[in-house]
């Protein structure tokens, strides 16, 4: 069997000013075909104004079995949030 076309992850900007968001994946021979297929597959009803495609093999992700340890450094730092601090009565614009 011939090797199948590579898989691409698709990110769509739904309107100007918003970030691109992951919407799914597809197969295409090259980046131009990936963009055109992404348009036909994920924006048939005006869902986007810009598309990014990235080869799936180039996406690196955190390991789910290490989620707890990986994100632990931010867990106990409640002083990073404004709600940690007591605002004395009468003090405004803080």
């Amino acid at each position: 069997m011939k090797k199948e076309w590579p898989q691409w992850e698709v990110f769509v900007r739904s309107e100007a000013g918003l970030a691109h968001k992951h919407v799914g994946s597809l197969h295409a021979a090259d980046e131009r075909m990936a963009l055109e297929n992404a348009r036909d597959l994920y924006t048939r009803r005006n869902e986007g104004v810009s598309i990014w495609v990235v080869k799936s093999e180039n996406v690196h992700a955190t390991d789910p079995s290490e989620t707890e340890a990986f994100f632990a450094p931010s867990e106990d730092k409640t002083y990073r949030h404004p709600t940690f601090y007591h605002v004395p009565e009468g003090v405004k614009h803080l």
Partner: peptide, 17 residues
Amino acid sequence: GAWVREAAAEHARKHGS
């Protein structure tokens, strides 16, 4: 469609990024 898949893959191999 086999020849189309192969031709596109070959085109990507020669001209893709």
